[in-house]
């Protein structure tokens, strides 16, 4: 705890609100990771934390350090931009891999591949199957 005591009240309140909002949004997203049923639904969940969660916590950090050092501290923008660019790429690659595995597995089981799209995400039905 060094430095925070010197924050003026408005900055402290703003930082606190941003922090709590960001952390709450991130937690809701991560809860979705546990609560949603199939893999393709679960992929939606962490994007909450990487979009709004990151933006709010980076904003809190920006407000806090800008006021403390009485100059514009903007380098948290880098984390926001980095997160906004990298997360969709990682998730798209991951979904591609999952889709490939589903199709390959069904081909192995001798089921019709059809439009090569797992409409019911069959992999999740066989829970507990060792990977």
């Amino acid at each position: 705890m060094n430095g925070i005591e010197h924050l003026p009240p408005w900055a402290a309140v703003l930082t606190a609100v941003f922090l709590l909002t960001g952390a709450a949004v991130t937690l809701i997203g991560s809860l979705g990771l546990l609560r949603l049923g199939t893999f393709y639904e679960r992929v939606h969940a962490p994007t909450l934390g990487t979009t709004l969660g990151t933006v709010f916590i980076a904003a809190a950090s920006m407000v806090c350090f800008s006021v403390l050092e009485s100059r514009a501290v903007l380098h948290e923008i880098l984390i926001v931009v980095l997160g906004a660019v990298t997360t969709p790429i990682a998730l798209t690659v991951l979904v591609g891999a999952a889709r490939f595995r589903d199709t390959a597995e069904r081909a192995q089981l001798g089921e019709p591949v059809g439009r090569a799209l797992p409409h019911a995400a069959p992999g999740d039905a066989s829970a507990g199957k060792a990977d």
Partner: peptide, 17 residues
């Protein structure tokens, strides 16, 4: 899990958090 891709998704979320 239950499958490997779920674990990777969990890892991604964990690193962001």
């Amino acid at each position: 899990g239950p499958r490997a891709q779920d674990r990777v998704l969990g890892f991604d979320t964990l690193s962001v958090n």
